[in-house]
Simulated scan of single mutants.
Amino acid sequence: MTLTQVWGALVIFVVSPLLGGLPLIRWIALIFTRQELNQIGTRNASVSAAFYHGGRFVGILAVLSEALKGIAAVLLARYFFPAGSAWEIVALIGVVMGRYWFARGAGTTNVAWGYLVHDPVASGLVFLISGISFTILRERKQAKFGVLFLFPLITALLHPQKQELLIVSATLAGLMGWIYTKVPDDLALDPQAAKRGSQSVFRFFQGDRFLQTLDHSLKPEKVGQKAATLAELKRAGYSVPPGWILTPGDDPEPLIAQISPSPKQPFVVRSSAIGEDSDIASAAGQYESVLSITSREALMPAITRCFASYHHASAVQYRR
């Protein structure tokens, strides 16, 4: 390693985290929407939050700003080291660390675009395989962590002689996987509350979650005591009507598409909040129930009303 490269390594270690920590998305959202992303929703100043709260235009600007960070980090490393070196991935690691330390983000967009500049072939293969898999399986969590598995795997297959490249690629994938477990997922937000131009994007990338019913063994800490108790009674043989569970962020459309309310078979939308009907609090009357739903068209407004009642002033005060 030459003296210039030693200085280059020091520059990468210092500049990359600072680059990742620049709150560009927060500034963009503040300028165009007058909203502080770190004070609304998941409080995560991410690309998906920009789409959700700011709409398509703000979201696109957020993508461009984070893409430029990743590209800049790779080009910075390339100024001091040969193109395609492991130092380009080290620079991306620095960006991701800065993104998490200063903005509580995962750096997904930074890495996606930086990796594209670093190795277009490997990036294209990862995008192709993961894109096809997600389109078929429609499972967001598997797709997200699957990409992290593919990233070092394809690197190893394309560059078997570059052990240092495999090591830093695996390190980057592991770091991002750890961060994914620490930061809130904006794609778990209710797509109905997103800006109109972003709702279809959110529905697509949310994927199709596993639809839970009262026939399953349910955990109160996940679906609330009411739903868990009804499921337990149903499995014990008691006469409990069929029921389905939607948790915050679930897309109701797959459920609505498979059930058919009618005047002869009306449906009810009821709450099952965490802590409701528990040993320490009943929350009686705090959340809204919608009765006598006789059409599919009436289901979505009823579900929205039920979810919204969780944030009613009286319910918030009760939980305190």
Rank of each mutant, 00 (worst) to 15 (best):
E164V: 01
E139R: 15
Q199W: 02
L18D: 07
V95R: 04
S85D: 07
I71R: 09
G21F: 06
A315S: 15
G177W: 10
L150V: 07
T109E: 12
Q199H: 08
G107F: 05
I280N: 13
S198N: 07
V183H: 05
A170H: 01
I303R: 09
P160V: 03
F149L: 15
A50F: 01
L30A: 10
A302Q: 08
K264I: 06
Q258W: 02
K219T: 11
H311F: 13
Q225W: 01
P17L: 04
P120L: 10
G98N: 06
P242H: 10
G70I: 04
R196S: 13
A236G: 11
Y180M: 13
V96D: 10
Y52V: 00
P184W: 10
L24T: 11
W27H: 04
P82D: 03
P248D: 01
A49G: 03
I303E: 04
L157H: 09
N110F: 02
L150F: 02
G275M: 11
L291T: 12
K234G: 06
A284Y: 15
G105I: 03
A45T: 00
G20P: 01
G8T: 00
L214K: 02
K226I: 04
C306N: 08
E297H: 10
Q161D: 15
T33K: 15
R203F: 11
G197N: 08
V268N: 06
V316W: 08
Y52H: 05
L3E: 12
A62I: 02
I31W: 14
I71M: 11
R140P: 01
Q192E: 14
I245C: 00
L255I: 12
H53V: 00
I60H: 03
A315Q: 09
L18V: 05
V126I: 12
E164H: 08
S200P: 02
M300V: 04
I179V: 12
G107T: 07
